[in-house]
C-alpha cells in the first residue's frame, strides 16, 4: 500500500506513442484499487511538439496535474524533454530517460543548439537517474515501437507494485498480436539496473 500518491510524468515528443504508456499505468492503478487520474493533451502539440502526460494514483486524487517538485518518477522518451521537465522531479525521485535525441525545429534551422552532455549532467545532479538506449533494446526485442514497454519495464522495477500486476495490465491494454514483443520489451526493461 502506498501511503502517499504515486505521481508519474511521461514526457516526450508528439507522435512518440506516450499515450499507450499512460493507458498501461492507469490500468495498473485500477488493479491496485487506487483512485486514478491521467491527464494528457491532445491536439496541436501532438504534431511534433513537446508533450507531457500526468498519471496520479493513490487513496484520493484531486488535481490531475503534477506540480514542480512533486513527481516520484519522470519517464522521458527523449533526452531534451527529460531536461525540460526535470524541475518537476521530487528530491529523491527517479528519472528514467531514453537516450534518443530528436532535434527540435530551432536546432534543425540552426537558431539554437542541442545541449551537450544532458545525460551526464542529469546523472550528476539527480541520483535517481537511469538512462538507456530503449530504442535499441526495443529493436532487439523485435519492434522499435516497443520503446514504451522497455521504459515501463524500468519504471515498474522502481515502484512497490508487484510485477504480476504490471504483466496483467499489459495483457489487457496491448493488442494481442503485439503482446509477445511487448512482454519481451517489458522484461528487458525490468532487467535494466
Amino acid at each position: 500500500m502506498i501511503m502517499n500518491n504515486l505521481n508519474i510524468m511521461i514526457v516526450g515528443v508528439g507522435g512518440q506513442g506516450t499515450l499507450l504508456a499512460s493507458r498501461i499505468l492507469g490500468t495498473v492503478g485500477i488493479k491496485k484499487s487506487y483512485d486514478v487520474k491521467v491527464s494528457e493533451v491532445h491536439g496541436m502539440s501532438q504534431r511534433g511538439g513537446s508533450v507531457v502526460t500526468y498519471v496520479k494514483m493513490g487513496e484520493k486524487v484531486y488535481s490531475p496535474l503534477i506540480e514542480k517538485g512533486e513527481a516520484d518518477i519522470i519517464m522521458a522518451f527523449e533526452q531534451l524533454e527529460a531536461l525540460r521537465w526535470i524541475d518537476y522531479l521530487k528530491d529523491n525521485g527517479n528519472l528514467i530517460t531514453n537516450e534518443q535525441k530528436i532535434n527540435p525545429m530551432p536546432v534543425i534551422t540552426g537558431k539554437a543548439e542541442y545541449p551537450k552532455g544532458i545525460i551526464e549532467k542529469l546523472k550528476e545532479n539527480y541520483k535517481g537517474t537511469v538512462s538507456l538506449d530503449a530504442l535499441n533494446i526495443a529493436k532487439q526485442c523485435g519492434n522499435t515501437k516497443a520503446v514504451n514497454l522497455v521504459l515501463i519495464g524500468v519504471l515498474a522495477k522502481r515502484t512497490d507494485i508487484e510485477k504480476e500486476v504490471w504483466l496483467e495490465a499489459i495483457k489487457e491494454t496491448v493488442p494481442a498480436k503485439f503482446l509477445d514483443v511487448n512482454i519481451k520489451a517489458f522484461e528487458a526493461g525490468y532487467e535494466v539496473s
Partner: peptide, 11 residues
C-alpha cells in the same frame, strides 16, 4: 542544471 533548453514547437 544550467543548460539552455531550446523550445520544441509543433511542426
Amino acid at each position: 542544471i544550467d543548460l539552455n533548453v531550446p523550445v520544441r514547437p509543433p511542426v
